[in-house]
């Protein structure tokens, strides 16, 4: 996916966040808190856990469905992270060769399990993050983080990062197009050219940062970012949202539901050690 199509999809997420569904209307703090709890619950599972991760897909899926966000868009965007994730875990099967169990003749090693676990966790985390942005909006997420106590300096950095991401990407695109126009044969920039492009972008960014700061000073900036928007309240709907998802996440974190479902015939057959001894 090119830089321009990536930008287009980010803008599309922006558009989705302006929808008016009950999920969109929830105070952003509720959605942010549940997402943070979700990430902590999921990421703290053991490294060989794979089946226990499956119920965690319910949160991003339901968030997207209730918020009328196209699942295909989320999955397509999440798939973009796959190459990086695979690169991180690809050597696990070679390093950890301890056999955990067999599926027919195939020996499943610890490395295979941890690799699958890394891929699944990353996909879930990215999908959840995208679903959150699509039903809340990046700006509202920042605001919620601020109201939850994130330091203003960090918050302003995040807001500016998002605001100028588009300007910076447009500049990068223009530079890449200018380069392509002067390259008859080689359409792929070399590492050296990438270095130069990144250096130029950095210098332009520094210049722009200076000008933005001047513009802020000219309108009375004194270190505090004023906020005009009315604050939303954390009402019964938000408490309900947090309680339901909180209980669900605690349950799927403590109990490996797919494993228990798989063991159900054993439990029903009266074998010892199950939920239904």
């Amino acid at each position: 996916m090119g830089l321009d199509s990536a930008l287009h999809e980010i803008r599309h997420l922006d558009d989705l966040s302006s929808k008016d569904t009950p999920t969109h209307r929830l105070d952003a703090r509720a959605k942010v808190l549940v997402t943070l709890f979700y990430l902590v619950s999921m990421l703290s599972l053991g490294r060989y856990e794979v089946s226990a991760l499956l119920p965690f897909a319910a949160f991003p899926l339901l968030l997207a469905v209730q918020g009328e966000v196209p699942l295909a868009l989320l999955l397509r965007r999440a798939a973009l992270a796959l190459p990086f994730v695979i690169f991180v875990g690809i050597f696990n099967p070679l390093i950890d060769r301890a056999v955990h169990f067999h599926v027919g003749p195939l020996a499943i090693t610890g490395g295979m399990l941890s690799f699958a676990s890394i891929v699944l966790r990353s996909l879930l985390a990215v999908t959840t993050g995208l679903a959150l942005v699509a039903v809340t909006g990046f700006d509202q997420i920042c605001r919620a983080l601020g109201r939850l106590g994130m330091p203003t300096t960090l918050l302003v950095q995040l807001q500016f990062l998002y605001r100028y991401l588009f300007v910076l990407a447009d500049e990068a695109l223009r530079m890449l197009h200018a380069r392509v126009q002067r390259c008859a044969k080689n359409n792929h920039p070399t590492l050296r050219e990438y270095r130069t492009l990144l250096g130029s972008l950095l210098l332009r960014t520094l210049d722009r940062a200076g000008r933005v700061h001047q513009a802020m000073l000219c309108r009375g900036f004194d270190g505090q970012m004023p906020d005009l928007r009315p604050t939303t309240t954390f009402g019964p709907a938000e408490w309900r949202f947090c309680a339901i998802w909180g209980l669900f996440l605690i349950a799927v974190r403590i109990l490996n539901i797919p494993q228990h479902l798989g063991n159900l015939p054993l439990y029903l057959g009266g074998k010892a050690g199950g939920l239904f001894p």
Binding site: R208, R211, L228
Partner: peptide, 23 residues
């Protein structure tokens, strides 16, 4: 400013226009 992108730094137009009056 010459480049409006230097001047419009807040998340929405309304917040940007309100930036000066609030300050």
């Amino acid at each position: 400013f010459q480049d409006p992108d230097d001047q419009l730094f807040m998340p929405t137009v309304a917040e940007d226009v309100a930036f000066g009056p609030l300050n």
